[in-house]
């Protein structure tokens, strides 16, 4: 049996995480910049390993969100096409049965 992957939900989760990671990247930069300003310096987006990690994770989740949205849309289109085909097939079957019945 083929498992149905909830691409929409995954896109949503990735979106939420990307949102908070973006906020974390910006907030950490602002806080560090404020601290650095005490010695007249400026912070960097990649000044610490964890800032880099946050940034990379942010990018990954943002990409994941986009990818899952695309997959969800493709999946939905395929699903719609499959349903349409099934409906059409059902109609054809129904029509065929009717022809047989009328021939009898």
């Amino acid at each position: 049996m083929k498992i149905k992957v909830p691409y929409g939900a995954l896109a949503g989760v990735c979106g939420v995480l990307a949102f908070y990671l973006t906020a974390a990247v910006v907030a950490s930069f602002q806080v560090l910049d404020r601290i650095e300003a005490e010695t007249n310096n400026h912070a960097s987006l990649f000044g610490n390993w964890w800032q880099t990690l946050l940034f990379v994770a942010d990018i990954l989740f943002a990409c994941g969100m986009i990818a899952f949205i695309v997959l969800a849309v493709i999946g939905r289109k395929r699903s719609t096409a499959r349903i349409s085909a099934a409906v059409a097939q059902q109609k054809e079957v129904a029509n065929g049965e009717a022809v047989i019945e009328s021939a009898e």
Binding site: P6, G8, A9, G12, V13, V16, F19
Partner: peptide, 19 residues
């Protein structure tokens, strides 16, 4: 819709934890 509520739950749960 499970997906919507799960995602919203995650969003607000994280927001709550952050606060």
């Amino acid at each position: 819709n499970r997906s919507v509520w799960c995602v919203l739950s995650l969003f607000f749960a994280i927001a709550f934890i952050i606060t």
